[in-house]
Each structure stands twice: as structure tokens, then as C-alpha cells.
Nucleic acid binder design. Structure first.
Lengths: 116, 116
DNA sequence: TTGAGTGGTAACCAACTGGATACCACATTT
DNA sequence: AAATGTGGTATCCAGTTGGTTACCACTCAA
């Protein structure tokens, strides 16, 4: 006889907050941008330097997305020529421990990939 | 005068483990699948029931990816008709705290989205 | 006046992704 | 023999994504 379908032992709030958070992290380089901002405020050009393979187009898109979601703030710096500085918000900083955990798992994934 | 480019205060190991981990989580529904498996072993059909909007095609793809990375194990159940059960590996379980943190941030993202 | 350095944007395009639909093999139940 | 319930796969296709390239406005130094 076919097995009964068991009720799930875990629940998911409607309109899933995990999906919401992942929508923010799914874009290319998004976790990397957050990672580098975790070291303190960073200018556009500095981020391009931190993440050499990111294009200006994508970096710009990511920063605006993160800004619109309240993860990052943009601040104009009154230098010459004027410059823009990006920083994590308080909410953005709450992502750091999670991202560190993910990186830790990533390390083990790589080890496994080598040994198999 | 132009601002100097500051050295980043955070470093990234070469061939980034965070990127590695995100490659695994980026696929559609991947975090949700892991979330539901965190409640214990789950069959293909049960997962489809847990995540109603996922297609068989994508669920199948996600499970095989997660299996090939050592996050999930597939076990044949000797029932009739035969059934397949998926379970998190030990490494897979290490993702749970990170995913819970992400969901917590996701909740605050939604609150912010409503109030702004 | 020209050039470099700031922080971007616009247009184009190939590749990837995932949704929908149809379909399959197999084992039981009816 | 037919229907149902397992766990999928094959094919098609439209939408999204992000890389590339070119370009822009502005400020200051040479």
C-alpha cells in the first residue's frame, strides 16, 4: 500500500521571510558586497577593487537594491571629486553572523569537493 | 584631491567559500527544501506538498544538486510502490542555524517594507 | 586645455533559469 | 484490464540575468 503523506513537522509563515531574505541575496555578488561592507564604510571604487570581477553595472544594481531594502546606506562624501560611500545599516549588520555561517559551510563544501 | 583607495579591513580566502555556499542556495526553492528537510526525512511527494508552487522538474533538480554537494542523502524506501526519502546530512544540518538567521532578517525586511 | 580620476548609466546580447505540459516505468488495487 | 499512486524525465519556451562596451558629468592637477 502507498505510504501516507506525513504532516510536515516544520511550518512556514505565509509569504515566507526566508524567500524574502534570499531574494535580496540571490543577485550576483550580493553576499560579497555585504561581506566587504562588514569591514566598514566603503566607496564605489573601493568595492570594485575588492571584487575585481564585478562590473560597474552590476555593482551599481546591487547597491541600489540593498539600499532600497534598508541593508545599506549611501552617503555622499564632500571630497573632490565628490565621492560616495556605502555602509551597512543596523539591519544589514544582522546579516553578518548568518553570512559567516554560510562561509563556514562553504569551506567544508570545498574540502569535500577536493576529497571526493 | 582624490581620496586614496583604502585597503579593505576584511579579507577573502581565494576561491571564496561564501560564493561556493551561495552557489548551492541560489537555485529556486533551495533554502525552502533544506528548511523542510530540517524537520526530518521527507519523500519527494511530501516535499511537493510542502512547497506547493514548486514543479517536479525543479524539485528534482534541486534535490540532485544538494545530493551531489553532500547536503542531502537519498534513500530508497522499500514500500509499494517504492518510494524515495531525502534527508539532511550532518553537513546539511550545519546550514540550519544560518538559514534561521536569514529568515529572522527576512521577517524584519518585511516589517520594514510594510511600514515604509 | 587636456587628462585622469571620481561615480556611475545606456544599450546590446548570449546564456541561463525555471515554469508548464506531457509523458514514462513500475507496483499495487479495483 | 484499467486506474491510481509512486518518482520522476523530456521538451519547449519566455523571462531574467549579468557581462561587455561605450559613454557621460563633474572636479581637479598639470
Amino acid at each position: 500500500m502507498a505510504l501516507p503523506v506525513r504532516k510536515s513537522s516544520v511550518e512556514f509563515p505565509p509569504n515566507c521571510p526566508l524567500t524574502e531574505c534570499m531574494a535580496m541575496l540571490r543577485g550576483a555578488w550580493a553576499p560579497n558586497v555585504i561581506w566587504y561592507l562588514s569591514g566598514g564604510p566603503r566607496r564605489f571604487g573601493e568595492l570594485r577593487h575588492d571584487i575585481p570581477r564585478i562590473s560597474a553595472r552590476v555593482l551599481s544594481a546591487r547597491l541600489r537594491e540593498l539600499e532600497s531594502r534598508g541593508i545599506v546606506v549611501r552617503r555622499l562624501v564632500d571630497s573632490s571629486p565628490p565621492s560616495a560611500e556605502y555602509d551597512l545599516t543596523e539591519l544589514g549588520r544582522e546579516l553578518i553572523p548568518a553570512i559567516k555561517s554560510l562561509a563556514a559551510v562553504g569551506t567544508k563544501l570545498k574540502l569535500r569537493a577536493v576529497s571526493c
